[in-house]
Nucleic acid binder design. Sequence first.
DNA 1: ACAAAAGTGTTAGGCCTACACCCATGA
DNA 2: TCATGGGTGTAGGCCTAACACTTTTGT
Lengths: 230, 230
Amino acid sequence: MEDLKYCYKYPHPAVTADCVIFGFDGVSIKVLLIQRGIEPYKDRWAFPGGFVRMDESVEECAKRELFEETGLKSASVEQFYTFSDVNRDPRERVITVAHYALVKISEVCGGDDAARAQWFSFDELPPLAFDHDRILRVALTKIKERICFEPIGFELLPEVFTMPELQNLYEAILGVKFDRRNFYSKMRKLEILTQVGERPAGTSSRIPILYRFNPTKYAELKNRGFRLEF
Amino acid sequence: MEDLKYCYKYPHPAVTADCVIFGFDGVSIKVLLIQRGIEPYKDRWAFPGGFVRMDESVEECAKRELFEETGLKSASVEQFYTFSDVNRDPRERVITVAHYALVKISEVCGGDDAARAQWFSFDELPPLAFDHDRILRVALTKIKERICFEPIGFELLPEVFTMPELQNLYEAILGVKFDRRNFYSKMRKLEILTQVGERPAGTSSRIPILYRFNPTKYAELKNRGFRLEF
DNA sequence: ACAAAAGTGTTAGGCCTACACCCATGA
DNA sequence: TCATGGGTGTAGGCCTAACACTTTTGT
């Protein structure tokens, strides 16, 4: 008991930051999980995360843990809910501030740190540690809410992408199907897409046109907020 | 030092729950503050709130503290952000989960507990304790986001209200002016308002028509979500 | 008598939705 | 040659935004 050296007049909960990391492979949404190496829930899959240090905010903690456990250096990690059920951790009272981030799936391929990290799609999810299944459900809800008002979708796509890919992304997140023609014109109206290169005139209607997004317009739209009526 | 009886292997932050309580007096938005009786920030105004106990979630804590300090028993206290800057409390590391609630201003009039509680409008705010001014700004942002998608506004109004009052409420929260005629028809289209009583025919165009809201339609709309294009 | 507050309806424009056809490729 | 995937444009309906007049009351 000699190592219990941090003492308080009243009981204090432990506080952690967890990261729900979403990716997109062109077809379906993926989530990044880490296989736990220690008890409790040893060998179960869980979100990257860990205990908040006394010299960092929970957001800083989330970014640090994310980097340590997956090698990801994502600028936009954002908290979305704090889970505080009394018995959510068998060790002691732990309150977790849950964050999410949208990343390009290619960014997390390499790295030895990421040995235990793996992308899962929703129809092949393993059982999760702690209350992480609940955290995932809430994260999904929040993402759905956001995607209609901020062009967050693009953070999930590679630099260059096709219109069908973009549509797949929206359909995968929102769980609905759109009319291709309406989706195209809606996106064009936003004026954040720039066509990449030229399609040799008349030579192909089968290979999709490539786009990248216009960073200026994109940032502007993101600040101003927008309204996607899906 | 004998009373430092809660000891841990690693340092733990303290965790509090704070409540930003919004009210509406028919003209402007008010916020409920409590004058602190103890250091730090003694005599400064702050949001109701306090330390999370080990046998309650942060939401339960928020409700409990709200009741203890203001006599309010509000069903719908909702967390909106967790503030964790390292030095936000001079005593020790304190992370606070901030909540908000919308209440009818009449519900908090009586009660001795509320002796130190007082409603303030935004143009006469006193200096706030801790980082509560920042918390207030974030709360306002979140409320603005919500009011366009959930009919939360009605929770701020008395049972029976007039259309101008309702419009004032929306204008006060969103900080913009609406065309009266467009606002009226938009509200009518939602079909959640029921006219109260009868206006003696032809006898008055100066006193406003009274409405209450239809709880069934209101709940339905709240679940389904809606879209107010202001 | 005049200013201020409350009530009401119409029109034009923009956005959303639904929908059909052509071209190219690969089986 | 046929099925599949990609690209494009149009017409109708709904919602939004702009806008004017009448009544009443209080000063």
